[in-house]
Design a protein around this nucleic acid. Structure first.
Lengths: 132, 132
DNA sequence: CAGGATCCTGATTGATACTG
DNA sequence: CAGTATCAATCAGGATCCTG
């Protein structure tokens, strides 16, 4: 019998191909928080201070940036360095693990590049069909 | 000058590596909707009827399953076939584009497999440090 | 069987003000 | 500068009832 797919009770198979989908869900959840991916992408350019990060990631509120960074730090994707001077200085950088995200993110990016047009056309068709 | 990263105004670079991040965000947004990934994973096993899908994806409400399927259909990831009989029969299956998601999802899955433990340990450390 | 329409609630997010 | 704290608004998700 096939393992049912559930978000609450861990192990289940991922097609006929891979396993580990629950942590995967959690990872995706983190990655795709409203701002996480943007922060990660910004940090892939190199280490950055809070204020610089805030300038890079347009539209993020200081509250959400802080929160996002805390979550990424909690997961060991981002490293936070506090220099206790006045005024305070805090630097952020990706950890090794964080940098390793580049491969999977690139894979998604490639899928997007290959299929972006098709998605757009699918949406148009859908909208048109709905209009009829 | 570097292109700033923004969720509302499209083009910006993805590290020194790839481009196209805005559709990527949208894709991730879709993929990581609470249920989307589970539905996709279920459908990677093969075509399925609504009721079967609902059994496979534990805990999903009928409303959310419907909504998720509509979104995936709108993006051209899932194909919907209605057989107008009584009682109605509706089949769902991945499109080619949907099946191609396997590669990127596998990449994330692999990252998770390599780093799941590290994430767990990072969280423990973070919790411990916060406790002090 | 498949899904539309409502109502309702808790979680997310944003704006604002304050601080070491 | 880099936050924390608070309040208000928005929204996604679930429960329930209904129908071709």
């Amino acid at each position: 019998m096939e393992t049912p797919i559930t978000p609450t009770e861990p192990p289940h198979t991922f097609a006929e191909c891979t396993r580990v989908a629950v942590p995967m869900i959690q990872v995706l959840g983190r990655i795709s928080g409203r701002w996480s991916l943007y922060v990660i992408m910004a940090l892939m350019r190199g280490p950055m201070r809070f204020s610089e990060l805030r300038r890079q990631v347009h539209g993020v509120s200081q509250k959400m940036l802080t929160q996002t960074l805390r979550e990424l730090e909690e997961d060991g994707i981002v490293h936070r360095t506090v220099t206790p001077i006045i005024p305070p200085r805090v630097d952020y950088e990706l950890t090794d693990m964080g940098r390793e995200l580049q491969a999977p993110l690139t894979a998604i990016s490639e899928w997007t590049e290959r299929n972006g047009d098709r998605v757009a056309r699918a949406r148009e068709r859908y909208a048109a069909a709905k209009g009829i």
